[in-house]
């Protein structure tokens, strides 16, 4: 809670140089990157990262590893397609965006709250099993239900609204849209960490029984965390349906649900930044592995093998993910320097 004591530097002076460089590169990227890079690589990274950061929030701070985040994102995406305009005019209602978006967030949050309430009935490792089972049930349901979810084919031609006369699916606007949403979600997760709710959630993760003995309703906090995480997942889900311009059961299948976990774990599930680092690595591998695999005579499908092995390596050797590796590398370098200078770093 420590309020900053007598700051001797202004807040922006305390942000390391590396951050300023990253921000500058991200903001100016449309000036030097091509459309494919903006739309496919960076856009998709931000979207995946946003969905994964909702898992980081639940797992890293709340200790609840949920495989439902992709389903919740998908439900929000589906709602945008169903309530708003799409190519499937027989089902889509074609409502205005200012009704569609709040409704999508709300419905996804209600779904997340209900599922969360089921999942927190049990603890620990059961959560992962129950959420996996619910995710699968939702996937099969969307595939079989034609009256609402249009079954196997789903919805296509789901486009973002033309706000301010901008086509938000053009590469540069879409890039900035995704960057803005991702930055907001990341900032929100970091900010909430130090709020009463965020602190209480970490308390619940560390010692639920003691939290109850401090006056906290542990179950309600856990369910509320599921509801809050659904907001981030929904942001990602809606951006995803706009990026692909379509949504189908395959978007929310079990492999997709597991990919979100893989992304969060590879980056480092204890820190919000890890979700975006993991997403970037995942997308780079996904996008460029066909070429590389092709040169060695493998089929592009072996991408899954690489991701699986990479995930295994991270879980086995660096539970803090890539960010953890980075920290350790820096710590080792710092130790090497220390004896010479005698000063810290």
């Amino acid at each position: 809670m420590a309020p900053a004591r007598a700051p001797d530097r202004l807040w922006f002076e305390r942000i390391p140089m590396a951050w300023w460089i990253v921000v500058a590169v991200l903001l100016t990227m449309p000036l030097f990157a091509n459309n494919f890079w903006l739309f496919q690589v960076m856009g998709w990274s931000f979207i995946l990262g946003t969905i994964a950061v909702s898992l980081t929030f639940l797992a890293g701070y709340g200790g609840m590893v949920s495989l439902l985040q992709m389903s919740i994102a998908g439900l929000a995406g589906y709602m945008v397609a169903i309530l708003g305009p799409s190519g499937t005019t027989s089902i889509s209602l074609g409502l205005a965006w200012w009704i569609v978006l709040p409704a999508a967030f709300l419905i996804a949050a209600v779904f997340a709250t209900l599922c969360g309430a089921l999942a927190v009935r049990t603890e620990g490792i059961y959560t992962i099993m129950i959420t996996l089972a619910i995710a699968a049930a939702f996937f099969y349901f969307t595939r079989q239900n034609y009256t609402i979810f249009n079954g196997y084919s789903g919805f296509n031609l789901v486009l973002p609204p033309q706000l301010f006369g901008v086509n938000w699916r053009d590469p540069a606007p879409f890039y900035y849209l995704c960057l803005g949403c991702a930055a907001l979600c990341y900032g929100a997760v970091v900010y909430i960490t130090r709020s009463p709710f965020g602190l209480a959630l970490q308390g619940v993760r560390d010692n639920p029984r003691r939290m109850a003995a401090l006056g906290f309703n542990v179950t309600a906090h856990r369910v509320a965390a599921h509801a809050l995480a659904s907001v981030f997942a929904s942001v990602g889900g809606i951006l995803l349906v706009w990026q692909n311009a379509q949504i189908a059961p395959g978007t929310i299948g079990i492999p997709a649900a597991i990919d979100i976990l893989v992304v969060a774990v590879i980056g480092g599930i204890r820190r919000p930044l890890g979700a975006f680092v993991g997403a970037f690595i995942y997308v780079i591998l996904q996008v460029f592995s066909p070429d590389i695999l092709g040169t060695f005579g493998f089929s592009a499908e072996r991408f899954k093998l690489i991701i699986g092995l990479g995930f295994l390596a991270v879980v086995l050797f660096s539970p803090d993910g890539v960010l953890g590796l980075w920290d350790r590398w820096r710590a080792r370098r710092a130790r090497r320097v220390d004896p010479l200078t005698g000063a810290p770093r």
Binding site: V65, G124, I125, I128, I258, L261, V262, V265, E301, R302, K304, L305, I307, G308, L309, F311, L312, V315, L316, P319
Partner: peptide
């Protein structure tokens, strides 16, 4: 427990491919 479960997920991805 969690790490074992994650490892088993990784194994399932690898075995499937």
């Amino acid at each position: 427990e969690l790490r074992q479960t994650l490892v088993s997920i990784g194994l399932s991805v690898v075995l499937a491919d």
